[in-house]
């Protein structure tokens, strides 16, 4: 049973089409990445998932049932725009959020304290929200979304504005939640984060779904035609007949081959010309490259005048 199932949803704000004919489904125990450039319809899609806005057409199902507000007790949501009551103390705020989700005050408090410890912000507990750093506020918001132990966690740009250490802490926590069998959906425009984190992805561009599937399966659709090379000396191999395009960043080259078979001949020839390699790796295209490539194939890309606006 899919935890989230969107069928052909469409949303139009005045004249702007935010989401058009989008369908996707998310299984339990999955880390799902919703990718797309800014303004591509990620937030609109997420808002329809939790009934904050109603699609103009199409259906939303959560936990195998048509959407009802009662289901929201089983959903944890972290909005893109963080918001907390500035004058409230951290613990009060968390307990309040927990109560809104139907928890008893005492249980909410117990869990809030445990989570604060887990997220390494115990010193913030007695403080008012306005006294805290942005990163800390974000962690509190994160906890607020998880206090009621939701089966479905939806996070809009969860890592934006966090330093690498805290971003890692959040990622680890999300991975643990997935390990507990929960479905985690998050949106991002940072492809590098998705690659190692997500089991499944969907790429949206200008309100439309461009690509969807298991991350490994999506990547395997694309041939291993990328080479990353770190070298010294002669760089004439970059102009080999098998090279479709190449970027040379002062001795670190990213090469796209016409086809995977060109990899070995390229290496042989380069060595013959005296190029010294410290690394020569044949890899799949990165998600970012897949993303750009698949966006470029859409008619909307041409309509937008060749802009991806990442």
């Amino acid at each position: 049973m899919a935890i989230v199932e969107l069928q052909n949803i469409r949303k139009v704000y005045d004249k702007k089409v935010a989401v058009e004919g989008l369908s996707l489904s998310i299984e339990p125990g999955t880390m799902f990445g919703l990718l797309g450039p800014n303004g591509s319809g990620k937030t609109s899609t997420i808002r329809m998932m939790i009934g904050m806005t109603v699609p103009d057409s199409g259906t939303v199902k959560l936990f195998g049932q048509p959407f009802t507000r009662d289901q929201l007790k089983r959903v944890g949501y972290l909005p893109e725009e963080r918001g907390l009551y500035k004058k409230m103390k951290v613990l009060e705020q968390l307990v309040f959020m927990g109560q809104l989700h139907g928890l008893e005050a005492s249980l909410a408090e117990k869990r809030a304290l445990a989570w604060c410890e887990r997220m390494e912000i115990t010193e913030a507990i007695p403080k008012k929200v306005e006294e805290l750093s942005k990163g800390m506020q974000q962690k509190i918001q994160f906890i607020a979304a998880l206090l009621h132990e939701p089966e479905l966690v939806i996070m809009d740009e969860p890592f934006s504005g966090l330093d690498p250490v805290n971003a890692q802490l959040l990622m680890d926590t999300l991975l643990q939640l997935r390990g507990e069998g929960k479905a985690v959906v998050f949106s991002t425009h940072r492809m590098d984060q998705v690659e190692k984190l997500c089991d499944a992805i969907a790429i949206v561009y200008r309100g439309k779904l461009v690509l969807e599937g298991q991350t490994r399966e999506v990547k395997s659709r694309y041939p291993r035609n990328r080479v990353q090379a770190v070298f010294q000396g002669d760089d004439s191999f970059l102009r080999h007949e098998g090279v479709a395009s190449a970027n040379n960043y002062a001795g670190i080259a990213e090469i796209a081959l016409r086809s995977p078979e060109f990899a070995q001949p390229l290496l042989v020839e380069a060595i013959a010309r005296g190029t010294q390699f410290t690394r020569f790796e044949v890899i799949e295209p990165t998600l970012e490259e897949i993303f750009i490539e698949s966006v470029k194939k859409t008619p909307e890309y041409a309509a937008a005048g060749g802009r991806i606006d990442v």
Partner: peptide, 16 residues
């Protein structure tokens, strides 16, 4: 205030 601090977005995810 709730609008500028965006608190209501969190709230609207659970309540009407």
């Amino acid at each position: 205030e709730e609008k500028t601090s965006r608190v209501f977005e969190v709230m609207l995810a659970t309540i009407k």
